[in-house]
């Protein structure tokens, strides 16, 4: 596979992850499966961001003083070839947010399980009649 094919299939994978996540949130009865669905959607969005920053045949976007001293005229070339690094920073932030959401959600799950002895949405939301 060449670079742009990788990018294409990466986007397809991201879309699949999001669709599976939404399916889990809507149709699955077990609340842990729903939580997994939320996380899958987040991962799909992260994958979109990473794929955006990816550049077929690109180089790592780190520039060192040593590299600069070796060939001062390198910057234009570097700017043309380096992958786009901003999305990676965004992904890092989003992973942290996702982890904290996951922690709170699983904490709630423990409490709900202790109270209802079940993880089924039908059991837990029984008092709120449909």
């Amino acid at each position: 596979m060449n670079g742009s094919e990788v990018q294409f299939w990466s986007f397809v994978t991201a879309a699949l992850l999001m669709i599976i996540g939404i399916y889990a949130i809507i149709f699955m009865d077990n609340i842990i499966k729903k939580i997994i669905g939320v996380m899958l959607i987040g991962d799909g969005v992260n994958l979109v961001l990473i794929t955006e920053g990816f550049k077929p045949g690109g180089i790592v976007p780190i520039i060192s003083e040593k590299l600069y001293n070796q060939s001062p005229g390198i910057f234009q070339e570097f700017a043309d070839q380096a992958s786009y690094s901003l999305p990676f920073a965004l992904v890092l932030t989003n992973i942290v947010i996702g982890a904290s959401t996951l922690a709170v959600l699983l904490g709630i799950t423990i409490k709900l399980y202790q109270h209802y002895n079940s993880l089924s949405v039908h059991e837990i939301f029984k008092e709120e009649k449909i």
């Binding site: 939404i22 949130i25 809507i26 949405v121 837990i124 939301f125 449909i130």
Partner: peptide, 16 residues
Amino acid sequence: SKENTDHYNIAAFYVA
């Protein structure tokens, strides 16, 4: 009022 309860599935249906 039946369509606006606090049940999870109602919310999920309308959100979708």
